[in-house]
């Protein structure tokens, strides 16, 4: 098994955070993984993206031109990364930030989820990326949700640990809503 996912969005949307969480969750599940962030100029206000590669053997390339999945938190991220998804892949589009996007590709499953609205309903708009990750993870099944929840204390800074329960709630809400889409 080798699963590469690109997570992308605006800087400040928590992209690198969910990338890290997905990777550490995989580690906790006993899998190997790499996390490769975009960095530098892109960190200063533009787009942010990272590639997380998960494998049950040694991870080869930490970069990929044909990911198994994409988590696109905004419109430009769909445009840039979705066409690269390979056969049997999974795309999550945050429709709160890409409302009119109608991307489709043969052999690619698309989840459309208004992550910001869902987060808002949960009481914290900043949880949108957690909702997205919950939805993606729940659907692709590579990393079990419980390992993501276990990984939260390692990813969130100490001062945000009081928010762990609401982050768990967001992960679960995302997974549940993605499931309902069938």
């Amino acid at each position: 098994m080798n699963h590469a996912v690109i997570m992308a969005g605006f800087g400040g949307q928590g992209i690198l955070m969910i990338g890290n969480l997905f990777a550490i969750g995989a580690l906790k599940q006993g899998l190997n993984c790499t996390f490769f962030p975009s960095y530098g100029v892109e960190m200063r206000g533009g787009t942010a993206n990272c590639t997380v590669t998960i494998s049950d053997h040694e991870v080869g390339s930490p970069v990929t031109s044909s990911p198994n999945g994409v988590v696109a938190m905004n419109e430009p991220s769909v445009a840039k990364f979705a066409p690269r998804i390979g056969e049997g892949g999974l795309l999550l589009i945050n429709t709160s930030m890409a409302p009119d996007n109608d991307f489709s590709k043969d052999g690619v499953e698309v989840i459309r989820l208004p992550c910001n609205q869902i987060a808002d309903e949960l009481g914290n708009i900043k949880l949108a990326s957690m909702v997205a990750l919950g939805a993606y993870a729940g659907r692709c099944g590579v990393v079990e949700l419980k390992f993501l929840e276990e990984a939260l204390p390692e990813v969130l800074p100490q001062k945000l640990h009081k928010l762990i329960p609401s982050n768990i709630e967001a992960l679960r809400a995302g997974a549940k809503r993605a499931d309902k889409q069938d």
Binding site: N20, C33, F36, P37, P62, V63
Partner: peptide, 10 residues
């Protein structure tokens, strides 16, 4: 290089 420096692994 920048890839090995910036990427995370166990």
């Amino acid at each position: 290089d920048a890839m090995l420096g910036m990427m995370k692994e166990p």
